[in-house]
Design a protein around this nucleic acid. Sequence first.
DNA 1: TATGAATGAGGATTCATTCAT
DNA 2: CATGAATGAATCCTCATTCAT
Lengths: 222, 222, 222, 222
Amino acid sequence: MDEKQYLQQLIEAAEKEPDLTPKQAKILEAAIEIFSEKGYAATSTSEIAKRAEVAEGTIFRHYKTKKDLLLSIVMPMITKVAMPFFATHFINQVFAEAPSDYKDLLRKIMRNRYEFAKKNVPMLKILLQEAAFHNEIHTAFKGVFMEKAYPRFKELIHKNQEEGILVDFPVHTIIRMTMTTIFGFLITRFIIMPDADWDDEAEMERTIEFMLHGLSTESSNK
Amino acid sequence: MDEKQYLQQLIEAAEKEPDLTPKQAKILEAAIEIFSEKGYAATSTSEIAKRAEVAEGTIFRHYKTKKDLLLSIVMPMITKVAMPFFATHFINQVFAEAPSDYKDLLRKIMRNRYEFAKKNVPMLKILLQEAAFHNEIHTAFKGVFMEKAYPRFKELIHKNQEEGILVDFPVHTIIRMTMTTIFGFLITRFIIMPDADWDDEAEMERTIEFMLHGLSTESSNK
Amino acid sequence: MDEKQYLQQLIEAAEKEPDLTPKQAKILEAAIEIFSEKGYAATSTSEIAKRAEVAEGTIFRHYKTKKDLLLSIVMPMITKVAMPFFATHFINQVFAEAPSDYKDLLRKIMRNRYEFAKKNVPMLKILLQEAAFHNEIHTAFKGVFMEKAYPRFKELIHKNQEEGILVDFPVHTIIRMTMTTIFGFLITRFIIMPDADWDDEAEMERTIEFMLHGLSTESSNK
Amino acid sequence: MDEKQYLQQLIEAAEKEPDLTPKQAKILEAAIEIFSEKGYAATSTSEIAKRAEVAEGTIFRHYKTKKDLLLSIVMPMITKVAMPFFATHFINQVFAEAPSDYKDLLRKIMRNRYEFAKKNVPMLKILLQEAAFHNEIHTAFKGVFMEKAYPRFKELIHKNQEEGILVDFPVHTIIRMTMTTIFGFLITRFIIMPDADWDDEAEMERTIEFMLHGLSTESSNK
DNA sequence: TATGAATGAGGATTCATTCAT
DNA sequence: CATGAATGAATCCTCATTCAT
């Protein structure tokens, strides 16, 4: 039910790119593929046109510049990537039930981002690679995380710290560690070593436990 | 003493690029700067030449192709990045002393990689960005980690697991988590948010504690 | 009365482009504007379409090619520009009255062309610019002047030369000087320095006097 | 002697474009030809390259943009065109001798500009065509005339008006008429009707007389 | 060793024109 | 009539690389 709610949001955002012409859709598809294979700068518009089975001019009828095409792929991604971290209706509720369900929250986020990553490997690759160079992306990224994710997490973390469930680290440290660990897993899993022999279920469970122990007060005051 | 030993190694490797002509040095310097600013593909040899105050032809006298220049920058980096994770003389010893000094090991690795990253931000950026696209790098990277880091860690981790100090996760999972956490910190610190207000000492200490708790058996069997 | 007669002609010719659809009118309007701003070759049909608030395809429904559009603007202009120089009913008459009214003729022509230029700056600019490059225009121009203006002036000039009113220059020389002087004024006034501080009435009067003295026999045989 | 002095200047300015590589010279030559044949906007760099027997890239090694190439042709022209109108050593002297030699001045200027135009038809065509559209040219043109030609002429004209040699027209009017008449002749002669059957000597003499009468006080106060 | 002019293939982008709706 | 998506040739320009000096 809660899940549906934010899945809803995911869908909405995805739908927000409306009525693309079929050609336009093919262009996007091709661009995502090739950008993720060789990087934005090393991809030529002529190659995109070829793979999309479209005249090169057609690309520029829909996207004023090559960079425009990149941003039209990457910008919506940013919100989608960050979304479950501030889909608060859902988070609030789970978090509220406290101790035992903290693990449950991590598990849900983890699984959700896992499914998302699985279906969006090329896009994630693009996002990762190009974020470094294009200020537009850089900025949007910071904006979403700092203005949306951060304040939401803040209260939750504080509450849990007061209840003695979470270590007394600064909020941003906890967020960084959570995200680093989750994204670290996903990047290793899907981008760095996609061909290794992964037992996804087990690995996710372990990663969650790692975070759980790492962030809990228990071991330290044993 | 031990520290000197592997610092020795760092130095050796660094020295291994010998007697560059002054021009060559300027080329390398310029290339590193610009590659890290805009990425390899988006950097032109003429721009490098200009920044290095060298004729464009001179670049090609020293590096057969533009890619050659990239690899000559990136290849030595790979070993340097991975090095302390398999500077075993030192690691063996510390690890051998068991429980209490496990934390000390992490602390040493962390600090050492921190100092290294601090001095090599542009190079790290290049390494990170281009690793994805160039098979040569990709392969070298995997090679170093799989053939050198992995087997070393394997024994150590097993021993510590038998002694009940480390959780019973698969070796590669533990390596992944350690590296992810350390690199996650360094990347956030130096690449994603270099301008934030960091208290490096505290943050490193927290990151170590996070790993320590996350990977120890203690909290879970309390 | 006479004036009305050739104004009539002006109107006729202008009207000869009949029942343009509103869209067509907007296209023409936009094309004239932009052609005169940046020249024919540097103007794109898409820009014309945009300024005319019309689909690009619509242009080509009305004008087979871009050049067609240019010619449909420029061709009627040619006759209009040359017209008063061979609106002979009127000219004959005035010229016939001799000595004193020679000045009057120049004054009428000058004023008439001034009013015309004033209302057609952009068109004149186009005509001027493109005449050089497009043979169609080039030819039409020569045709109109040589076949219509020249023979008319010929008789008039001869008569006035016989009467000792006009210098004994060849006919084409006198035509050239008259036109050069009038167009020279108009071009300077409206195209080269439209923003200067002009006293049009005075300047026209001076220009007429200049021609008058320049072409009369009086001063030379004083 | 005096003539040599300003011919000197002409040469100096012409020489000011120094040591062009042979390729560069060929590029300039070809560009001048084609620009004058079809106009700047309608000329493609690939066509220039072909006619100059040079790789297209070579053009851009020497001129950053196509417009740069245009300006490098046109800018020096501007001073050259205007020059004899403010080569004052020479003008001052002739003008100073008054009444009878006023004609001599016009004759010298006319002949000099005639020779110049004769040798520079294509460049003049370019200058004429493109002056209208490119602000850089427009501005440079105005600058040269307003700052250099105008003030020089001003004193001379005033003196001659006080002596009753020149009509009492405003300075700029006299300059405009002089230039209009001279350029009007040259443009008709070399650009509009180069193929007509010209008797240049006679025509120039007539044109000078035309100006002489047109601007003198004599006929009017006869 | 170092230069920088020269290259031509390939890059992104624009354009006039067509055509199905 | 009017549209605007689609085209692909052509445009300006950049690039890695070569080579004579």
